[in-house]
Design a protein around this nucleic acid. Structure first.
Length: 885
RNA sequence: AGGCAAGUAGCUCAGGGGGAGAGCGCCAUCCUGACGCGGUGGAUGUCCAGGGUUCAAAUCCCUGCUUGCCUACCA
């Protein structure tokens, strides 16, 4: 037998690297395309290729890895599909900035060279996050790693686009879209963030064309008046019924525009009349379509006034505002200016104010897709956890608007549409055409736009598995079992995957969706670089080790709650890792001479039986909690077991088997239990703390298995259930705690061994106490212990009451009567409160008639217990009074 | 403007119709054979407020207050 030793403490930095490589080398993260085992699969929410690991990633991926390792150990053919997202705008920005430092723009390079440059950047710097995920211990099947821009996924994108197009689900048209003047692209409604802005509301006078009177309109964007093509009022607004159909003169532009009536206008806001600028406002655009109004675009893609803006041409939109206001004032058109708070749309990427702009874009008709995606949740084909999110999902899906999928970027999936220069034929094809199918012309021009990054992400659950090829992996792992992601991308991503999955695969993309909360700082504020309150996960990992960090995240993850990360708590769990390590050290020492093969083994001792029963319960709790994605409960259950049951009690209780004289058979029995329990505990801990458990398992393990991560997850063992051992042990623990309490309260030094007497109510209990004598003596630090049925209370003792059992601790020499009286008084007050509460209930007729029988019985037992306790305490108290005289 | 969630120990949070819990912190004590990153013991609560349902409410319902978030955005 080789002697196995552990270093003084666990060294995460060194071990984590070594063990991760060990797993990789043995290919343990790999899932089989085909297997007899049931499949379990998760696709990773692909991080941006430009991304760096932040707390959100750390939480998200820790939770995934916990479930993945749990399922893998349970014997599933487990796939965690990793990969990255090409992040159109973000990545293009990064490379453009790089070019800018060289004094160049992407236009200097041209499209092809620019894209080549982005790929170059990607190879060189992209995907830092993948290595960071490895440091988190993520057991992804890296052999399968995908990228949304790789060949296979690009093919999937084209395939889906063409299918949607052919089925009339994609259309192109001139519509008003959210335009980012800095990114120079359209973005979807979801990509606009609204920010409160302190601004003004300007009232402007529009004189009637016939020279008599005027109409006042209010606006937050005076510069857009240059493109006004109407003024609108509510059709039911009596003040204006006469003027509908008349014309006003648009100030500064000196142009006649009509007054129209539309329900959109609220009569009781402002003057009840609205200027209509279809080219610069989505609502106005809708009105223009209803009324066939002229649509004039006055602001170009850079946010500069164009030739339609007359003398204001060339001015930036904000400069134009100032000049328009000045000119209106000069012309006496400005009625008033009042401070006004309103919200303004900004680009979620660069925070530039959105400029609503009419342009030619591609859209997906979303309603039919949404309908099915709603039905799938209603029917329970996909379950969202926590369920409260389902309402949010329905709300959004029911009010969904067509999805603008074209982006005026270079980096992304170029739209697979070509235009024939010869006959203007529109060719939509999965492969690049070389000639026009109609006229045979070869002068073909591909659409300039690329697709929204989320378009490719929406296909992620099947595109990563090889679709459109009918791969074995697809068959085995689709629909995936679970998706774990933050609620913040419920619409961006989850909803769109649901729609696309159902549309393309005719099956939901995942059975369960677990939405976790955001990670905030201790004060509950969102972590951000600009606020300087963000905690870098990698710094935490360096400082406290991955296991402690992961355990913290898991322990924090209660359903529907934000995670308020505090470094102190991570430190606390580092101590937990250390505790496990030290328990392992003791275990190893105690197992040193363990002759596993020996057939001569005694029956389990009481602590052995007890710890097995407790472990059983812990297994059930951890498994049950993980099955329901109750991560915090799982973490709490295992923490409690390891620290407060195994370490605090079992290791102490088993010491006599190693330090005092017991039979070799008994020693072996305890060694066997110790080994079983410790190993099982490691298995139970592994999904949360992969590294330290592997390290310890390697030392402890004697089987041929390669790694704890492919060994089996514990299952509750019926033979280990033992309610009577739990009860018996509880009695002993109560006695020990009672003695310790007296010792502590009465200031009896720990070094002083005590001679304790116990009065037991009957022979059965006496039997239990006698049987547990060694444990009591050891853990309560006693010199002698005697137990007698109905022992009369001796003089000069402190009394502990456990039901009808009395513990007498002699206050040898240092009879602190006042102290003991105070202690008893405290207890008496407590028990009196219980007593009152209890008897009040039991004397309540309504309670006796209506409460459940079990509750009444419990209440009655409680009463008796309290009465016994009370009597015992009072008697002890009175006896002290007697002594005092 | 609507919607959702939450208000429980000094802090961070579990729990969820019948005896108020954990971790950290705090106090006292202990260099007991793995662990001071430890052991042992202890103190601490108008479970946001008000009303209702119930034999019984921290828990369910209503109202209000506070906070956070989401959706929409009316010039």
């Amino acid at each position: 037998m080789t002697k196995r030793e552990l270093s003084k403490s666990f060294e995460p930095q060194e071990a984590e690297k070594r063990l991760y490589e060990y797993w990789l080398k043995r290919n343990l993260f790999h899932a089989q395309d085909e297997s007899e085992a049931k499949a379990f699969s998760i696709v990773i929410p692909p991080p941006n290729v430009t991304g760096m690991l932040h707390m959100g990633h750390a939480l998200n991926n820790t939770l995934q890895d916990v479930i993945i390792r749990f399922k893998r150990m349970q014997g599933y053919n487990t796939l965690w599909m990793p990969g990255m997202d090409h992040a159109g705008i973000a990545t293009q920005n990064v490379v453009e900035q790089e070019l800018a430092r060289e004094g160049k723009s992407r236009h200097d390079l041209g499209r092809e060279k620019f894209i080549a440059r982005v790929w170059e950047w990607k190879e060189k710097y992209g995907g830092v996050i993948i290595n960071q995920l490895k440091r988190l211990g993520c057991s992804c099947d890296w052999d399968r790693e995908r990228f949304t821009m790789d060949e296979g996924l690009s093919k999937a994108v084209r395939e889906v686009f063409v299918r949607l197009y052919n089925e009339d689900m994609i259309y192109q048209g001139d519509y008003i879209v959210n335009w980012c003047p800095r990114c120079h692209t359209a973005i979807s409604d979801l990509e606009v963030e609204f920010k409160q802005d302190q601004s003004f509301l300007w009232d402007i006078r529009y004189p009637f064309a016939d020279g008599k009177g005027e109409i006042i309109v209010a606006t937050t964007r005076p510069e857009t008046m240059l493109g006004d093509t109407a003024v609108a009022v509510n059709p039911n607004d009596d003040r204006y019924t006469d003027v509908v159909g008349k014309y006003v003169i648009l100030p500064l532009m000196n142009k006649k525009i009509p007054i129209i009536a539309d329900d959109y206008v609220t009569a009781d806001f402002g003057s009840g009349a609205v200027k209509i600028t279809p080219g610069s406002d989505p609502n106005d655009f809708a009105i223009a379509q209803r009324h066939n109004l002229e649509i004039i675009t006055i602001i170009d893609g850079h946010g500069i006034i164009n030739e339609q803006g007359g003398v204001y041409k060339g001015l930036d939109r904000y400069e134009a505002r100032q000049k328009v206001i000045a000119d209106l004032e000069k012309g006496k058109y400005l009625v008033k200016t009042e401070p006004y708070i309103h919200s303004i749309g900004q680009c979620y990427r660069c925070k530039t104010d959105i400029e609503p702009m009419v342009s030619k874009q591609w859209f997906v008709k979303i309603k039919p897709l949404a309908k099915q995606a709603i039905a799938a949740i209603v029917k329970g084909k996909t379950k969202i956890v926590p369920g409260t999110w389902e309402a949010t999902y329905f709300e959004w899906m029911n009010n969904i608007r067509d999805w603008c999928i074209s982006r005026q970027l270079w980096w992304g999936h170029r739209i697979p549409v070509w235009y024939c220069a010869g006959c203007n034929k529109v060719i939509v094809s999965t492969t690049d055409p070389d000639k026009c199918p109609d006229c045979g012309g070869t002068k073909l021009r591909q659409d300039e736009d690329v697709l929204d990054t989320w378009f490719s992400s929406a296909l992620w659950p099947f595109s990563t598995l090889g679709w459109p090829k009918k791969t074995k992996a697809l068959k085995t792992f689709y629909p995936t079992s679970l998706l774990i992601t933050g609620f913040d991308i419920l619409f961006f991503w989850v909803a769109r995957m649901m729609m696309m999955g159902i549309y393309v695969m005719k099956e939901v993309p995942f059975k369960d969706v677990y939405l976790h909360a955001l990670v905030r700082d201790e004060k509950g504020e969102k972590m951000s670089k600009s606020k300087g309150n963000s905690i870098d996960p990698l710094v935490m990992i360096d400082k406290y080790g991955t296991d402690a960090f992961r355990f913290t995240l898991t322990a924090y993850t209660a359903q529907g709650r934000d995670v308020r990360m505090s470094e102190e708590r991570i430190e606390g769990y580092k101590f937990f890792v250390n505790k496990i390590w030290n328990a392992a050290k003791l275990t190893l020492v105690n197992l040193e001479d363990f002759d596993e093969k020996s057939a001569v083994i005694a029956e389990d001792s009481l602590p052995d039986k007890w710890i097995k029963a407790r472990l059983n319960r812990a297994i059930e709790e951890v498994t049950g909690s993980l099955d329901e994605y109750r991560f915090n409960d799982a973490a709490a259950a295992i923490y409690r077991f390891v620290w407060h049951e195994f370490c605090d009690w079992y290791l102490e209780l088993s010491k006599p088997a190693f330090y005092s004289k017991v039979s070799p058979e008994q020693r072996r029995a305890t060694q066997r239990t110790l080994q079983d329990i410790f190993k099982t505990m490691l298995h139970l801990l592994h999904p949360f703390m992969p590294f330290v458990t592997e390290e310890l398992w390697q030392v402890l393990n004697r089987s041929d298995e390669k790694s704890i991560m492919v060994s089996s997850f514990p299952e509750a063992n019926k033979e280990w259930e033992n309610a009577s051992a739990e009860k018996e042990m509880e009695l002993l623990m109560d006695i020990i705690t009672s003695v310790r309490n007296i010792r502590g309260e009465m200031r009896i030094p720990p070094s002083q061994k005590l001679q304790v007497m116990i009065s037991v109510p009957d022979k059965e209990i006496k039997g239990m106490v006698d049987a547990g004598k060694d444990y009591l003596v050891n853990l309560a630090n006693l010199e002698t212990l005697t137990a007698e049925v109905a022992l009369v209370e001796p003089k000069g003792v402190a009394t502990g009451v456990i039901g009808s059992l009395l513990v007498f601790v002699p206050l040898a020499g240092i009879v602190d009567i006042a102290g003991e009286k105070a202690r008893l008084q405290k207890e008496i007050v407590k028990v009196k409160k219980d007593l009152e509460q209890c008897s009040r209930k039991l004397s309540n007729q309504d309670f006796m008639e209506k409460a459940a029988a079990a509750i009444i019985k419990k209440e009655e037992e409680k009463l008796k217990d309290s009465q016994d306790r009370h009597a015992a305490l009072e008697s002890a108290f009175n006896k002290l009074k007697d002594i005092e005289g």
